[in-house]
Amino acid sequence: MDYFEPKTLREAVSLLARYGEKAKVIAGGTDVLVDMKFKEEPLCLVNIKRIPGMSYIREEKGSLRIGALTPIREIETSSVVRQKLPLLWESAHQFASLQIRNTATIGGNVCRASPSGETLAPLLVLEASAVARFSKGEKKLPFTELFLGPGKTLLGAKGLLREIEVPLPSKESRGAYLKHAVRGAMDIAMVGVAVLVTPDGGGKKARDVRIGLGAVAPTPIRAKRAEKALRGKAMARALVEEAARIAASESSPISDQRSSAEYRRWIVETLTRRGLEQSWRAVTGKEIDG
């Protein structure tokens, strides 16, 4: 196995350009090292941890910029994230054990592109973008287009994630991230649901509703039809229940050792409803009525 510790992004992407599919990027290594032990070693390992200045959380022009090498634990303990992106904070907080959170990076979570990746549904709902470096230059890839399938992103074999840019949601908006797993945070999510609700001026109607679903399709997805059913409407109980059913119908989960597809759909419905209820309660201080 060839092994490199590039010191700059330029050096890293030129290695990826040279080795193509034969190269594997390693950041925290919590996914890659397990694969290397139990599947196979890559022909070339590109360890990006020695590239300086890639672990940071910065507020800039209405966005939070998070370096790809930022550990999940840094996100969890960041007061800016907790204040301004509570949805992302919640997913970092529910992410595996402390030991894993100290090692795993957010860039690795995104590039792994696991449908159950903890931070993905929240980032999708927050309409984040991935800033990726290729040998020809940089591209900003919206999360809504980034994921192609399990383990597959627009970065391909030659792109390197440098930064995640998260626009700060409107101050009146409130959200929730709900994870269903057997062993709580330690476990991979059976279903993860991220909800973000922005009320209109009067606080009666939902100006904007975003619903992200994790672990129930080949990629994390937005439940677009459910969102549409709620947008601009007064949040009444029957409508919220209907939207939750629509969200479940938009998911296409698989059956595996963790649970059956039918069970997952049922959990999507329940968590979406709860997420909407919680978010609305946080927005208005009241329960949804009617």
Partner: peptide, 12 residues
């Protein structure tokens, strides 16, 4: 900081 040394590269 506590880490699981089985999923950390010695090189790191």
């Amino acid at each position: 900081k506590p880490v699981n040394s089985c999923v950390v590269l010695a090189a790191d």
